[in-house]
Design a protein around this nucleic acid. Structure first.
Lengths: 205, 205
DNA sequence: TGTACATCAGTGAACGCGCGTTCACTGATGTAC
DNA sequence: TGTACATCAGTGAACGCGCGTTCACTGATGTAC
């Protein structure tokens, strides 16, 4: 190489890095992320333990990468869906996006839910910041559709509704992840109803 | 002893057991419960590592004891408060009980929040069962006060409101635990508002 | 073009350390008679 | 009452093991000239 690595080398390194992140997610779902070891992750990624250091200084740095590179896109997708229409259809748009996220990347969702209340404060803060983006998106759509502004101070009511809706969404993630996969239809209906309830607040549903 | 231990001996053993549970909670808040070691907990409880086995077979059994002996009473207290009056005052009764729980036993609350979405399925299930009691208590009060029964099928609406309210309560625990202790007053008002929003659903607030 | 050198992902040996678990033991305190 | 025995919480030594980290190295591939 010398000053720069070739594209092939950079791709190769990126593949190894990706396999480390994937391995950490897969193992974390089983044993918990906090108890994950560097050697354990390297082994699952099929590299020598010492090679781990070519990508991350320690497991904490890997956790931070998971937040930024894996969790963030999932939450941003939800936020995009929230603002991709008016408030009346937001319930179903969000719930559908939740189900897609759980189907595609259940480990990422589990990581989000776990570390949001986990032991590492930096991860908790990072995830809280990401979730704030989603809350803002929900509040924006509510305000824009004027559905919450009909009474009282609009912004405050929209924020309140968004906070409650976010709590319901995260609760829904948990229930569906731990629930029976056979009963997705019922789970979906319940979550749509709960989210509608959360978004409606004191207005007519 | 022989066939039975003296009351003093049983008290002594109970004290040691309590110090193990306390140590696990205190350490768990800092490093996460999943990564907690038997030796680490025994050390913090000021007993020899081998003495741990006089009380628990392993850390998993200790975690189960935490659910049943520490978390359960906190949730039962919330459930008791929920049914200790009519639906109109339930918001403030529950929020006050949440603040008391956080002040008295922040480690227990943190344990509840963490393990509810943690890696050990048995703990998740145990905590879900405890929380179900609280949801039922909330739904019962709503139904009894007839505030949710005014429209549509009463039981279903009460259950939905209780589910949303529970999500808001748990979210409130998280926000207050991670929030600035100086701003308790504001946090309390926000949580009361959010819970009111959650309980109100589509009826007038 | 050839040759010398730089970069760097990945490696294997080695280290000291804390872990979970076993084992035989101690000492206090009970019961049996 | 005295004596033999049982129970059991707590102990310290010892074990094998996997951990995180360091180190000097390899080999592929780039640049400089």
């Amino acid at each position: 190489m010398a000053l720069r690595a070739s594209p092939e080398q950079r791709e190769e390194k990126e593949r190894t890095r990706k396999s480390l992140l994937d391995a950490a997610l897969a193992l974390g779902v089983r044993h918990g992320f906090a108890s994950l070891g560097l050697r354990e992750v390297a082994r699952a990624a099929a590299i020598a333990p010492t090679s781990f250091y070519r990508h991350f200084a320690d497991m904490g740095e890997l956790g931070f990468a998971l937040v930024h590179e894996r969790v963030r896109p999932v939450i941003r997708e939800l936020a995009t869906r929230a603002v991709a229409g008016d408030a009346s259809g937001m319930r179903t748009r969000l719930v559908d996006a939740v189900l897609v996220a759980i189907d595609r990347e259940p480990e990422v969702v589990r990581f989000l839910l776990s570390e949001r209340v986990g032991a590492f404060e930096r991860l908790r803060q990072g995830l809280a910041e990401e979730l704030e983006v989603l809350a803002t998106a929900i509040a924006t759509t509510l305000l824009a559709s004027g559905q919450s502004a009909s009474r009282g101070p609009g912004q405050a009511r929209a924020n309140l509704a968004a906070q409650v809706a976010l709590a319901v969404l995260l609760d829904g993630f948990t229930r569906i992840l731990d629930g029976d996969p056979e009963r997705r239809g019922e789970q979906r209906r319940t979550l749509v109803a709960a989210l509608g309830w959360a978004l409606a607040g004191s207005r007519k549903e």
